[in-house]
Design a binder for these strands. Structure first.
Lengths: 220, 220, 220, 220
DNA sequence: CATGAATGAGTGTTCATTCAT
DNA sequence: AATGAATGAACACTCATTCAT
């Protein structure tokens, strides 16, 4: 998973075939990286935090990654994989209740992915890094999702100026709401958020009607 | 005897009575600050960039602001004023074409504010600063807008699980789309974006029908 | 009073004949300077504090003094005058009770001077400034006092290795005790401190006997 | 999610387990710190001076100490240890020549400690730092010494208003004289100073008689 | 394969002093 | 005579990255 492209400096050692121990250490670093990124955010995340969380040393870190960005890149690749898979799993959304349900459970899966990879998604969406490779990765992952949505929108007879724009808007809304939902201090009810998103997208994009609100009424 | 206590140093300027020249310099700094923030983003913006843009010295900066956050805070206050005003200007949104138009031009005004204050809005939305005052400001500005929208949604017969959640989702979508639109490298057509947003919000939130798509068809 | 010697930079304007208003302003600055120095200490004292206390502006300050040191120098000259006068006022100290009383009331006067000029005395004693003129002033003021004490010690039959050293030790002790006494947070009883000092100096330097302790017993 | 909290940065070193090299570097920094402090004084001492003297980098300094104060604190702890030991070593002081000799050699030991730790002692005595921990350390170290002296004074039949005040005065005198003695430019004869102090304290505090002056007469 | 130690460029902030009105 | 405004050199501290063992 770790980046194959250009290596700005150093001897990143991820080309090498890793022995069992090596793979384990790398996995520990990736895991710790994702945790720290989610906890502290992209900018506040320090290499020191990561190696501490992984119970490793600075030297070890640079044995596996060329630099901090390189690790984020590796995580972004993991994330891109999940996103692509997710994008392929939406399927046709009907205007009726089945369509709503399909959207709802897709959003649930999105939420799960976001819970794990939120920080790298934001790193791209919020343009926190200057790393061009990361931007490319993010762009392609989001492009994939958008393209898939566009297909669905068009198949579902979305009639509007621009399906791509619609797909972008949908993803924007969904991404942000997931972000807010996971902010510490927010006490939104996950089910209500997902209901709202499902209903709005169903209605706004897929000509959905009479759907959604029937479920979980009075929940909150 | 050896004194210890200290004023928080750079008298935050807003406290002092400024002469004409002082007010001018402060305005220059605020302006430069907003420019640099928009160009470089919150984290990459250096005090040095700002003073260079304002053609001032480091010392001068700290004559008017206690620190970088303090300047951002001042800008956020300006921004909050604009937002509050904006929030008050939406009015009742009907399901018909007039409602659509009303939404559309409100979004246009939002876009104008965002073009100027985007960076501070993002500083709050993306939680880039640790400054609690800034968070308070952002929360109250967005709260204002959301509350206003809730009223409109309810008056317009929005039937859903939770009007507040709907308002949040709407703002989230609008904010993000404006952000993407202003990213350097994006070549979205402003009119198309606004059309899309107007239509989606009209349809998804205000039970709008048959609206929007008629306008500007084939624009892109 | 303000320094006549070398002027490192600027145009200190203390040579000029001052009109009434000018003399007033200068007095205000000196007064404020002494207050701030006593309150904040030499190092923590800012020009800004002084002009604020004097209700003047930065520009005005440099109209009267070449720099911060220059003001301290002026204050040191005032202080040196008081010290010299004080030094001359001790008189002969007898081994008996009259000698004790004489010492005691001299220490009282010293305390009064210290309460006002403590900060500049410390600036010299603690070598806080790099200003050579200030060091010269301090050295000569203390030298005066010491010389006078030496005379007294010798007249009083002080038999020891070195009268100068004895004088220095005496002044050192007296200066420090006055300093501690005036530290905020110290709750020493002034009378007890003065009694102790009077007794110790009388006994240690002037062969005093049976004196001192009789007075104010049980005071504390 | 964007993390905020932060460790107080430079893990104060005393917490971490250091390897041999680390201990060596830390010792080098402490040593250089003490040297620079003694040479330049507390306020004029720059981190840069210290790292240069220790032949280390800025980064290294902050690897071992949270900041300049932290290093001074560490030195103050070393010093407090020496002082406490010293305080315990005085023993009973008789009015006769043995008492004088005991005092004299105690003062000699004090002088040795002062030659090394003078700058941190002054940092406390002259209240140069705002660091409360340092004040606590200084207060307790001097409190220890004073308390021990009080015991000795009372056992030796010191009859006066207040033994604590007497102890304070004694320490004040001794500290200052050591300070002056070590000032560059002072050409006092160490033996004469110590004789004088021994005699004055013996006479003033311990009812000593006929002592001291006999020794080293004509030395100077 | 792993580690603790070391580095130094980069950044925010302070404050005595000078300038323009 | 007085003032508010402006300056910039100086300093503390951070943290990604490299080094030596």
């Amino acid at each position: 998973m770790a980046g194959q492209q250009k290596r700005p400096t150093g001897t990143p050692a991820s080309e090498r075939d890793l022995r069992r121990q090596g793979r384990k250490t790398m996995a520990r670093l990736l895991d710790a990286g994702m945790t720290v990124l989610n906890d502290r955010g992209y900018h506040a995340a320090r290499v020191d935090d990561i190696v501490r969380a992984a119970d490793a040393s600075h030297g070890t870190f640079y044995l596996y990654f060329a630099n901090k960005e390189d690790l984020v890149r590796a995580l972004a690749e993991e994330c891109a994989g999940e996103m692509t898979e997710l994008a392929g799993s939406l399927g046709r959304v009907e205007p009726g209740p089945e369509g709503y349900e399909r959207l709802r459970s897709w959003l649930e899966r999105f939420h799960e992915v976001y819970a794990r990879y939120g920080a790298v998604i934001r790193a791209w969406v919020e343009n926190q890094s200057t790393d061009s490779e990361l931007r490319r990765l993010g762009a392609s992952a989001f492009g994939d999702m958008a393209a898939r949505l566009v297909t669905q929108l068009e198949e579902s007879g979305y009639e509007s100026v621009d399906a791509e724009m619609g797909a972008a808007a949908l993803l924007a809304m969904v991404e942000r709401m997931n972000y807010f939902m996971l902010q510490p201090g927010t006490d939104w009810d996950e089910a209500v958020v997902l209901d709202t998103l499902a209903m709005l997208t169903h209605r706004g994009f897929f000509a959905g009607q009479g759907s959604g609100s029937r479920i979980r009424l009075g929940q909150r």
